[in-house]
Design a binder for these strands. Structure first.
Lengths: 158, 158
DNA sequence: TTCATATAGGACTAATTCAGTACAGATTAA
DNA sequence: TTAATCTGTACTGAATTAGTCCTATATGAA
């Protein structure tokens, strides 16, 4: 399974929350309440998004976060980049100086860039505006199977 | 960073090794030596690939593993599926009974399937045969940056 | 000016996953 | 029968992830 971290998942949920209500800035506490996510995590994720330039932060009383650009100008790739670094499926695709012991005889490496490019292209096609609209209903799955993030805290208690 | 596990990375390297020499079956020990990977890991990965039906195993002396189909009929998606389960970027996209607390108000979920489909399509286009050919040389990166798997054991010692 | 409200940054802990190893058992060719 | 080889499972240490907490700083308003 190819996966993103939960931090990124939360980030996307929070950003869609910011799109929906149009009275910025939005405080971390208000967003946490609206999205029903724990405040400390929300705060952490919003900080990261602000540092990456996707959000503008306003300190002090009546402060909060607002989008730095219109939601149609923010892509899923932007968000993932902001929260997990550049999309790269193996460590040998990230672009840092090489320390791979297999470099001399491994034939696979060069192909990953193609795969990465394809994934990135797919992610760039999805804008935050689209993500914040109600999800398209899929007819091939029952509705109960269309959204599933499983906080570990809930998994054992069920 | 969207990533696969090292087990999958190894799996692809091992499969390309199987393609290159055409005298099956190939023992785990021989493959480990050829690919310069630790035998216990190689053994573990090959077992998983065999269980998933990508490899045929032959027990006993002179036994080993061989591809169950020609390499052009095995895709990167097949390999990733075999070693990490179906490609799905968040837990809410995997198709098990739902336990997501956000189902009622989260608008993001339905979109992930589109992203997943796009990624899967990209992975299905890459065949094992292509992966086992020498990597295409990229002109936009120096050669030393084209393959990099960084075993943790090497990272701190450098 | 002072205070309440917010974000900024970083340190910290617990839980989970990952990477790698080990071993006892089953199978088969020679 | 024996040696080679896969099978399955269990285990360990390391790395990563998830989540919390605390202190500092900025700002609007009384």
């Amino acid at each position: 399974m190819i996966r993103i971290t939960r931090e990124t998942d939360y980030g996307i949920v929070l950003l869609t929350g910011l799109v929906q209500d149009a009275s910025p800035p939005y405080s971390a506490a208000a967003l946490a309440k609206q999205c029903r996510l724990p405040l400390p995590m929300v705060s952490k994720v919003l900080k990261a998004l602000a540092r990456a330039g996707l959000l503008i932060s306003q300190r002090g009383a009546q402060g909060g976060y607002s989008l730095s650009r219109p939601p149609e100008a923010i892509s899923a790739a932007d968000i993932i980049d902001a929260l997990e670094g550049p999309v790269a499926i193996t460590e040998c695709s990230v672009g840092l100086p090489s320390t791979c012991v297999h470099e001399g005889h491994c034939t696979v490496g060069g192909h990953w860039s193609r795969i990465n490019d394809a994934i990135r292209a797919a992610l760039e096609k999805i804008s935050l505006l689209e993500l914040s609209r109600p999800a398209p209903v899929r007819v091939d799955l029952p509705l109960t199977q269309q959204r599933r993030v499983i906080p570990q805290s809930l998994v054992h208690s069920s």
